[in-house]
Amino acid sequence: MGEHMTPRERVSAALKGEPVDRVPLCFWHHFNPEGSGERLAEQTLHFFRDTFHLDIIKIMPDIPYPGPEQPFLEARQIRFLPRLDVDTTPEFQQQLLCIRKIRAEVGPDSPIILTLFSPLTYLMFFFGPPHARTINIARSDPQVFEEGLGTLAANLRKLMEAAIDAGADGIFYSCMGATTADFTLDEYKELGWRYDLQALRGAEKGWLNIAHIHADPQQSSDQIYFEFFDRYPVQALSWSDRLTGPSLSEALTLTDKCLMGGLFERGPITQGGETEITNEIMAAITQTKGRRLILANGCSVPDDTPERWLQFARSQVDSLQH
């Protein structure tokens, strides 16, 4: 290990559990690109590269998947989800434009990941809140529900392949529904895992694929099916370890994958102060001994988070470099 690692070297070493000059750091919030891949690239570069010099550039899902204009009300509407082609879907083209522009700007040493949601998550979006609506449809009309999951998985697979070819290093793959408050584990295996495998085949060439296990902060009793995600074909697992179990130290015993977490998205990095931020960073590093860890928030920080707290977190991580 040299005295100073590039972001790519640092993240790659963390994935393998090898020594790093300091723990890799990433945090994020949403942008408003108004459908423009070029604008999203500019906003992303300003935040991740120019302002905070983060180790991973995470392209947010702010040019959304082309879903229905109005929430679905009944199962039969799922049948109208179209098969999409990358070359003729404007939203996909804009995401790929964003990837290419960022890669051209940062060169090979900065990891880039594209944020996408799982097929099950998209259907939960399409039916809208509460989650119970989607869950009821899945249970009452599973054949039609799974038709939609298959369509979405096929579309996502093509987009992922194109994203990696355009210069992304991997996919940040966000999964809802994998909690005790939503589907049973057996249901999740059929409706989540099965179609996730189909979609993630598109990311096979990526070296930085991350599964994000999403828990709703409003459902404080949630327990995520963390151990189940050890079988996902990804290099790292992301979750809100400060919101729901397991802790980082527990997670080290449950998977050999790299862990992405340690910072509470509604905690010190958004509210301060300096002592609390320092304590949270050091607790994450202590739990993992700084190995197999990408220090990150568990979910997006609020868009209006004061920059001073994010900058302080950045400076504290820098101070750990040796």
Rank of each mutant, 00 (worst) to 15 (best):
G2L: 09
E3V: 00
T6P: 08
T6F: 01
P7T: 02
E9D: 04
S12Y: 04
E18N: 12
P19Y: 03
P19N: 06
V20D: 09
D21V: 03
V23W: 06
P24N: 07
N32P: 00
N32L: 06
G35M: 06
R39M: 14
A41R: 07
L45S: 09
H46W: 11
F48V: 08
T51M: 10
T51C: 12
F52G: 08
L54M: 10
K58Y: 07
P61Q: 07
D62A: 06
P66S: 03
E69D: 15
Q70C: 10
F72D: 04
L73C: 12
R76N: 11
L84W: 06
T89I: 06
P90H: 02
P90V: 02
E91N: 11
F92Y: 11
Q94V: 02
E105F: 11
L114F: 10
P119T: 07
T121M: 05
Y122N: 08
Y122P: 04
L123H: 06
G128I: 01
P130A: 01
P130V: 02
H131C: 03
H131M: 09
H131F: 14
H131N: 11
A132E: 11
T134C: 06
I135Q: 01
N136R: 12
N136V: 00
A138P: 02
D141C: 01
V144M: 00
E147L: 00
G148D: 00
L149G: 03
G150H: 01
L152H: 01
A154I: 00
K158P: 03
M160R: 09
E161S: 14
A166C: 04
A168G: 09
D169A: 07
Y173M: 09
S174G: 10
A178N: 13
A178C: 12
T179H: 05
T180C: 05
F183I: 07
D186V: 12
E190Y: 04
L200F: 10
L200W: 10
R201E: 15
G202D: 13
G202V: 10
I213Y: 12
Q218M: 14
S221C: 12
Q223V: 15
I224P: 14
D230K: 11
R231G: 15
P233W: 13
V234C: 14
V234Q: 11
V234R: 07
Q235C: 14
W239Q: 14
R242N: 15
R242S: 13
G245Y: 12
L248M: 12
S249L: 05
T255I: 05
D256L: 03
L259W: 00
F264W: 07
E265Y: 03
R266H: 11
I269F: 05
I277Y: 05
T288N: 05
L293N: 09
I294R: 03
V301T: 15
P302K: 05
D303C: 04
E307P: 10
W309N: 08
W309F: 15
D318N: 12
S319P: 00
Q321G: 01
